[in-house]
Design a binder for these strands. Structure first.
Lengths: 127, 127
DNA sequence: GTATCTGCAAAGAATTTGCAATCCT
DNA sequence: AGGATTGCAAATTCTTTGCAGATAC
């Protein structure tokens, strides 16, 4: 694989974002420092980086895909009020998988789970 | 809300399917008994039925939405070999939610989880 | 040099929507 | 009658892809 400024920039943007940007958010940020970059290139490289295991793709219910710099095992919670995506780290992952595998006979390969709920901040505002 | 043959048919199709049909599968089946029905009507009614709480919508990673007659709490497993979607019933739902709510401070509203894996049948064939 | 990568624009896939005609009640 | 619902087609939204030119090695 050849080096490419576009790909380096895209990886940088995902790695430096503390939320979970969509492809067009990455595109908007990328254009700041590289005005001629195209959306197609952003998609191509995001997918390439996912294949290379350098970032993760998250499928959100009823929405665009999001990209995540954290590649270690974790889940997500999408706030139905503000729409933000939060990381969820679970200790008992293996236990949960084991329970399911035993009761169903299927084998679980990945379980990047997406929960829906109301985040801490939005709960504060409700009062 | 007015009665509509199209909506009755669509609900029937979802209720009588033992897998989790996509909108265009429902459309294909519906055309058998109602050849003039349109895909737009299928989408409109599926979404309406979801809003009414009579069926559920499942968002599959990298795929079309699927619709499910089972509205009680349960999860899904998508087999990466055959592509079928299986129901997963978990006893310890509340425990899992409680763990997450305590450790994060968020409130979980729904957690219709989608696992990826290899189903029982495909595992057999691998041998 | 040449294979990879890019920008562009067009194509694709899934879903939604505007509108005039039709159907319930 | 009159509002809800439909079929149709066009529009949207998100993502992928073909291709000719640019870039990295």
């Amino acid at each position: 694989m050849k080096n490419s400024n576009q790909r380096n920039l895209i990886l940088d943007i995902v790695n430096n974002s503390h939320n979970h940007p969509t492809a067009d958010i990455v595109y908007a940020i990328a254009k700041d420092s590289m005005p001629n970059i195209s959306l197609g290139t952003v998609y191509r490289n995001l997918n390439l980086l996912v294949e290379l295991g350098q970032i993760k793709k998250i499928a959100i219910y009823n929405g665009q895909d999001r990209f995540d710099k954290t590649i270690t095992h974790h889940h997500h919670l999408v706030c139905i009020k503000c729409g933000r995506t939060f990381d969820i780290l679970l200790e008992d992952k293996d236990e949960l998988c084991n329970v399911i595998e035993k009761s169903t006979g299927h084998t679980i390969i990945t379980n990047d789970l997406v929960f829906k709920g109301i985040c801490k901040d939005c709960k504060k505002e409700e009062r």
